[in-house]
């Protein structure tokens, strides 16, 4: 199966980065599970816009925005 190269960057202090290959047809939800991140705790950002987690992964870079509530 065709695989896609994806770079994932967690926005934030510790700058976690993952570079992984995933099968074409994988959803962002599945991708997040692969790197052990609960999809309900982050928003996926692609090209500056949030994308639904049931969208199919595209090759390239995404950023993850943590859901936070402190004040």
């Amino acid at each position: 199966m065709l695989s896609l190269k994806v770079r994932i960057e967690m926005l934030g202090s510790n700058k976690q980065v993952w570079e992984i290959d995933v099968d074409k047809g994988t959803t962002y939800e599945k991708l997040l599970e692969t790197i052990d991140i609960n999809p309900e705790t982050v928003i996926v950002i692609r090209d500056g816009f949030p994308v639904p987690i049931d969208d199919l992964v595209e090759e390239g870079e995404i950023k993850l925005l943590r859901v936070i509530s402190g004040g």
Binding site: L11, G12, S13, N38, E40, T41, I43, P50, L65, R66, V67, I68, S69, G70, G71
Partner: peptide
């Protein structure tokens, strides 16, 4: 909203622009 060293800011103008739930539909 804030967390450790991070912050997020957005201005919501109902009917004109997106709301908080447009980004975060529900809480974790």
């Amino acid at each position: 909203s804030i967390f450790r060293f991070e912050g997020q800011i957005m201005t919501i103008v109902p009917n004109e622009g997106p709301c908080y739930r447009c980004v975060f539909e529900h809480a974790p």
